[in-house]
């Protein structure tokens, strides 16, 4: 079983210092990630859901090694990334893990032609000739439905959906086994989103790709993922099998999120009555509340919730961090 796991994060923590003054004195810490664990299997998708400020994008930046973890470890095919040398990372990890960002307008260097944008991973990691690389770029572009003739143009000549396809082609260039998709469709038009989401599914089946999808839209997540992690203020509050989680959400926050994403028609007064509207906003990660971090907005909170930090409980295929399941 263990061999099926591609990437595993164990208790990862990321705190950013807040500095002030001339001497850059540290006056506090933004606790962006506070002990998060999850894993992704080969060819499967994990979705990480939460509101802005919950720490979703911080997770992406840790997995892509754009920053250094404060503590905890990430294992890739059983190897601890903390223990790998930079050369090993470049040779073993980098080619296997790629990134598709939210905004296809800023994720490409505007001064480069598409052939160099998509070819960059090949230029950097292989010793192929220019001609060989451009040939390969042509194939990659065909695969994502752009057509090889697009490679001589500049990114700004394409529409948002097309640019996102180009970004996918670039991410596929080195035959990765894991793609980190950071809100991959939320910057796109409604009629284009379905195209791109279908493209991701097809690629997953074709290349046995694993995805870590970062999203705020639950409906997108449900379509895309096998496993779901719900984040609130730097921590996972619920984690588990996608079907189970959407059928029986355990955490009050998950229930509120699902309620906020459901389609309710104006005349549907019954549905409206059932709707959960949370009060207040997410507290600042600079100074998270004691006890359960969600208790300030939870309608079911008790004294215990504001005092004691809840444990992660395993219930069937799900895990939930809430005192109601003690």
């Amino acid at each position: 079983m263990a061999s099926k796991i591609l990437l595993e994060a164990k208790d990862i923590v990321k705190h950013y210092p807040v500095t002030r003054g001339l001497l850059q004195r540290t006056v506090g810490w933004v606790r962006a990630l506070d002990g998060v664990s999850f894993s992704v299997e080969h060819g499967k998708s994990l979705s990480i859901v939460g509101e802005s400020g919950a720490g979703k994008t911080t997770i992406a930046r840790q997995i892509l090694l754009l920053e250094k973890l404060t503590s905890g470890s990430i294992f890739f095919e059983g190897q601890d990334l903390n223990k790998m040398t930079p050369a090993e990372i470049k040779a073993v990890y980098r080619p296997k893990v790629h990134y598709v960002q939210q905004n296809p307008w800023s994720s490409m260097n505007p001064r480069m032609r598409v052939r160099d944008v998509v070819g960059e991973p090949l230029f950097v990691n292989t010793k192929q000739s220019k001609k060989k690389v451009y040939e390969e770029v042509g194939t990659l572009l065909e695969q994502v439905g752009i057509g090889a003739e697009g490679m001589n143009r500049y990114p700004h000549e394409f529409s948002g959906g097309q640019r996102q396809r180009i970004a996918v082609a670039r991410a596929l260039a080195l035959n990765p086994s894991l793609l980190v998709l950071d809100e991959p469709v939320s910057a796109l038009d409604v009629s284009i989103r379905a195209q791109i989401m279908n493209l991701f599914k097809d690629l997953q089946d074709k290349f046995n790709l694993a995805f870590i999808v970062i999203a705020h839209n639950l409906a997108t997540v449900r379509y895309m993922s096998h496993t779901v992690a719900i984040m609130y203020l730097g921590q996972l509050v619920e984690y588990g099998d996608s079907e189970a989680l959407f059928e029986h959400p355990l955490h009050p926050y998950t229930r509120a999120l699902i309620s906020a994403s459901q389609l309710t028609l104006p005349e549907d007064s019954e549905g409206k009555a059932k709707q959960i509207i949370l009060t207040g906003e997410m507290p600042s990660p600079l100074n998270p509340p004691p006890g359960c971090r969600f208790h300030t907005r939870c309608s079911e909170a008790s004294d215990k919730c504001s005092r004691d930090v809840p444990e992660m409980h395993k219930i069937g295929k799900q895990q939930v961090k809430c005192h109601h399941y003690d």
Binding site: R61, K90, Y99, S106, S107, N109, V124, N125, R170
Partner: peptide
């Protein structure tokens, strides 16, 4: 701090390449 430099780093591009190919032209 732009997205495309993050991409280049994920692609394994060296600091020299990022400075000459990505930052300088912009």
């Amino acid at each position: 701090q732009s997205d495309f430099v993050a991409q280049a780093r994920v692609n394994g591009a060296s600091g020299w390449r990022i400075m000459t190919r990505h930052i300088f032209p912009n």
